[in-house]
Nucleic acid binder design. Structure first.
Length: 113
DNA sequence: AACGTGACACAGC
DNA sequence: AGCTGTGCCACGT
């Protein structure tokens, strides 16, 4: 019997994993919170991914992580247009806070890793 | 200690 | 085809 107790899910590990995956996102590629959550096994808690990125270090390109719609939901947390500008600089096209052809540039960690 | 909020996603209507 | 409601976990008040 295995762990009669409920493992509290190491959030520290969760955070580290989120950052790692985010950093591993290939240039010119994008991903969604749900994809990362799914890869981490916390699928259903996509909010946690967003929350994790909320405290992400600057070395993490969190601007490549959008919602399932390809919408730049968290651009406000980045500092205004910073997120959009960065994405455009990477070669993406943004229309009304939404990435064009997001589906085409979508990168799923669980699928690639 | 409880309620409400939040960088989301999915099922149901 | 779009909107509403619910689930998820942690944090702030």
């Amino acid at each position: 019997m295995p762990t009669p107790k409920k493992p509290k899910k190491d959030l520290s590990n969760f955070f580290a994993d989120v950052y790692e995956v985010t950093k591993l996102i290939p240039k010119g590629r994008l991903t969604s919170y749900g994809a990362i959550a799914n890869y981490l096994g916390t699928k259903g808690s996509a909010r946690m991914v967003g929350w994790a990125l909320h405290g992400c270090p600057k070395n993490v390109p969190a601007h490549r992580v959008l919602n399932r719609n390809g919408l730049l939901t968290g651009k406000h947390h980045f500092g205004g247009n910073r997120m959009q500008q960065l994405l455009e600089k990477e070669g993406h096209s943004i229309k009304k806070d939404q990435v064009v052809d997001f589906k085409k540039k979508y990168w799923d960690p669980a699928l690639e890793l």
